[in-house]
Design a protein around this nucleic acid. Structure first.
Length: 379
DNA sequence: GATTCTTGCACTCCGTGTCG
DNA sequence: CGACACGGAGTGCAAGAATC
């Protein structure tokens, strides 16, 4: 394949040629997330599979590794299929070296060496040190991420340098950084620094639900953040809410409510909020738009899968939401429509199994064409 | 021109929330 | 109280932009 594969169609066609590959698992690396959860990742001998070279694969958690009896040095089968993320499927036990010890989760955090805790009845293992450098960096990356505050150009490398140069303690300090400070970082010229400053300025307009999500409160993802923001309408109203009050919000139970209250009781977190306030972030939800919004998709539940040609997935989701529909992450009996793009995966299979109406992009767009009566042309 | 970093992409597992 | 639904978190690679 000397030619460059420019067209996605070629890549897709090639993907189906091979779905599994055999390679050697050289090591199991541990990654620390923003909530302190430690997850194992397999380091593999690079192998070409389904259109790309795979050198790492997810192992999910300790139980999963033990269930499949995966050990360092094993010859393993990895799979990609129509999926994007490679995983270890099974071990070739015949090729195992004698005496290879079973995997054991270490007792200490690989970064800060605090003792790791496995909470009773949970699979996840956590580093409980909230000041663990790995966690601070992960929280910073989460704050700036696309679906959070969306600060363009603020990736892991920038975050890492700012922290190691002691230029910031927490996410609140992002807003007091200067162009000169950015330019002092490696691989950061005037153009990049300027872009960063602009992105930081632009993110001050993000709505309340995004700010709430960006804070990285355990159990509060995009959806929970939106529910809470829509009901309480301002950050002050969220910070002063009791567990009981929060738990009356739809889809919010005692676990999430308690997590939110704990977060805002913490003195460090309150300092961060104060910095954000000083920076001029918008801590209130705008008034709901009245009148114009169509409710034609009212209550309809959509799932999006595959790659769309004319929209990003986010655009399609926004379009659905603006007509009163809802987008969820997984297909169930309650799903009304599945919007499927190119190289859709298991969600499409599930939709077909459940007999749910599948829309291609043309059919999806047709939903929004208004008929003669001015109503949306719904099926 | 070579190198590095960010971004877009789709899915699975597990725990929480809700409903009957 | 059990079953089901779904959100949260985490996973790697290729392409493109910017720096060196």
């Amino acid at each position: 394949l000397g030619a460059t594969l420019k067209s996605p169609r070629w890549v897709v066609a090639y993907k189906f040629a091979a779905q599994r590959a055999v390679t050697r698992l050289n090591d199991i690396r541990l990654q620390v997330g923003r909530t302190g959860v430690v997850t194992p990742v397999a380091e593999l001998d690079p192998v070409f599979l389904a259109g790309s070279t795979i050198s790492r694969a997810t192992l999910h958690n300790e139980d999963e590794i033990l269930r499949k009896d995966i050990r360092i040095g094993d010859t393993v089968v990895i799979e990609k299929g129509g999926d994007v993320i490679p995983k270890v499927v099974e071990v070739d036990f015949d090729k195992r070296q004698e005496g290879a010890p079973p995997f054991k989760m270490p007792a200490e955090c690989p970064v800060c060496h605090t003792g790791l805790m496995r909470i009773q009845d949970e699979v996840a293992v956590r580093c409980e040190n909230v000041s663990c450098p790995a966690q601070i960096q992960a929280r910073l990356e989460h704050f700036t991420a696309r679906n959070a505050m969306d600060i363009d150009g603020f990736g892991p490398a920038v975050a890492e340098q700012l922290l190691s140069h002691d230029l910031m303690q927490d996410v609140g300090d992002i807003f007091s950084l200067t162009q000169e400070q950015f330019m002092a970082l490696e691989r950061m010229g005037p153009k990049s620094a300027d872009n960063l400053i602009r992105s930081i300025e632009a993110c001050k307009d993000r709505p309340l639900d995004r700010i709430l999500f960006s804070l990285g409160i355990p159990h509060v993802g995009e959806r929970a953040a939106r529910q809470i923001a829509e009901r309480r309408r301002s950050l002050d109203q969220i910070m002063t809410a009791t567990v009981e009050e929060l738990a009356t919000i739809p889809e919010i139970g005692p676990t999430i409510a308690e997590s939110v209250v704990n977060f805002f009781q913490n003195e460090q977190n309150r300092t961060i909020i104060e910095k954000l306030r000083q920076a001029g972030l918008n801590m209130k939800l705008p008034e709901l738009p009245v009148g114009t919004a169509s409710q034609a998709l009212n209550g309809k539940i959509f799932v999006i899968t595959g790659t769309l040609a004319n929209h990003t997935r986010d655009e399609a989701a926004a379009r659905i939401a603006s007509s009163g529909g809802r987008v969820t992450a997984s297909v169930s009996k309650k799903t009304n429509y599945v919007l499927a793009g190119e190289s859709a995966g298991s969600k499409l299979d599930k939709a077909q199994a459940l007999g749910i109406q599948v829309l291609d992009e043309t059919a999806f767009e047709a939903l929004f064409k208004t008929g003669n009566d001015g109503q949306l042309n719904l099926l």
